[in-house]
Amino acid sequence: MAKILVVDDDSAVQATIRLLLERAGHSVVVAGDGRKGLAIFEAGEFDLLFLDIFMPGMDGLEAMRLIHQQQPLIPIIVMSGRPIDRDPALGPDFLTMATKLGAVCSLQKPFKAAALLATVTGCLDAVKRSSSSAAPARTIASGP
């Protein structure tokens, strides 16, 4: 299975994602912020990354930019707990912005386990199908 790096400042989110992915057979490494995540990424080889957009210190967008400078084709799933506002006057939609900047998928927190696993499977399958082109970006929003 895949080796996945999860970068999120919320330890409960880290633990949840790690548990779900390890139960699905993946190897998971976690980091609590963008700087630590970048250092771990540079020291290892990963098949997929999860990046929280809003973290203290180095945020997920900056970490994604630096990671893509080193490995432009690494698939990155961005996450955010901030609500998606369809009204641009209320602020930008950071998940959509992140996919335009190179993330292959995005997840709105809180998300359902099935949505997380489907997103991971879709991203890994897309990489297998074509390592030379990125998968279409999409946002996964959890619902009731």
Rank of each mutant, 00 (worst) to 15 (best):
V7M: 04
D9T: 02
S11E: 13
V13L: 05
A15P: 02
A15I: 06
I17V: 14
I17D: 00
R18S: 11
L21H: 05
L21Q: 06
E22H: 01
E22F: 08
E22A: 05
R23H: 04
G25A: 06
H26F: 05
V28I: 09
A31S: 11
A31F: 08
G34Q: 09
L38N: 08
A39T: 10
A43V: 06
F46K: 05
D47Q: 04
L49M: 06
F50L: 00
D52W: 07
M55I: 01
L61S: 03
L61A: 03
E62L: 09
L66D: 03
L66R: 13
I67D: 04
H68E: 09
Q69S: 07
Q69M: 08
Q69F: 04
Q71I: 11
L73M: 15
I77F: 02
V78S: 04
V78L: 04
M79H: 02
G81W: 12
G81M: 08
P83N: 13
P83I: 12
I84W: 14
I84K: 13
D85N: 15
L90C: 10
P92C: 13
D93Y: 12
F94T: 11
L95H: 08
T96G: 13
M97P: 00
T99R: 12
T99S: 02
T99G: 03
K100E: 15
K100L: 15
G102T: 06
G102S: 00
G102A: 03
G102W: 06
V104D: 02
C105W: 14
L107G: 07
K109P: 00
K109H: 02
P110S: 10
K112S: 06
A113Y: 13
A113D: 15
A113C: 08
A115Y: 11
A118G: 12
T119V: 00
T119H: 00
G122A: 04
D125L: 14
D125V: 11
S130A: 06
A135W: 06
P136C: 07
A137P: 09
A137K: 07
